[in-house]
Design a protein around this nucleic acid. Sequence first.
DNA 1: GCACTATACTACCTTATCGCGATACTAAAC
DNA 2: GTTTAGTATCGCGATAAGGTAGTATAGTGC
Lengths: 114, 114
Amino acid sequence: MKKNEVTKLSMSDAQVDEAARQFSVLAESARLILLRELMAGEASVGELVERTGIKQGTVSKHLGILAAAGFLERERRGNKVIYRICDPVVYDLCSLMCCRLSDEAKRRAQSLAD
Amino acid sequence: MKKNEVTKLSMSDAQVDEAARQFSVLAESARLILLRELMAGEASVGELVERTGIKQGTVSKHLGILAAAGFLERERRGNKVIYRICDPVVYDLCSLMCCRLSDEAKRRAQSLAD
DNA sequence: GCACTATACTACCTTATCGCGATACTAAAC
DNA sequence: GTTTAGTATCGCGATAAGGTAGTATAGTGC
């Protein structure tokens, strides 16, 4: 499957639903913050709670959602659970979105200059 | 800003919020369906209503959301309004997600084989 | 101006999901 | 086996978003 062929007309409605579901997993500030932390390397739930200030239950829930979506993988290590990014696509998706945001910012600055 | 530097640790919480908002725009089946149609070329609201079977009010609303997010641009042509994709990033984001989905499918098939 | 078509806007209801607190589970340590 | 730290889950209230119907606005042709 080549990149530019994939999205043109070949997606079934079921695939569209699934894609939407995948995007919705990334459409949450808390989850992006967790991903951002995990981009620096694997971490346990407790470490992420400490670093982000998000409540434990909430962190656990979001990590579960990210793992269920296939972005993260879990590993039990003693009485801790380690999460790490297991799909490099995460980096690409976030990079694209970030570039897009900076471009938008430039565009808006341009508009203001008029 | 280089691609692989962007998302590592440099995003502020405000940028994360904005990124989440952008992803949430794509986290909707109806909007992905409209994007899929528009990937074949520009189209009017009426044409999109016809092709997708989605109600006019709903189509108009979603097109408005996509345009507000900077994915689409509007052009009034007579008594019709034409929409078209104005940000090529859309193709990349959707391609990445589609490739990811097919990979996931393969992974799941592999798991079933065990 | 008047009818007709195309698009946008508003209000309402429904559904989904977030964050939180409390609680239950799991594994190590004693 | 009991305790303790770490993690997961459940139930709740609140908030946000989607879909629809109805209405308003804008352009076209007579």
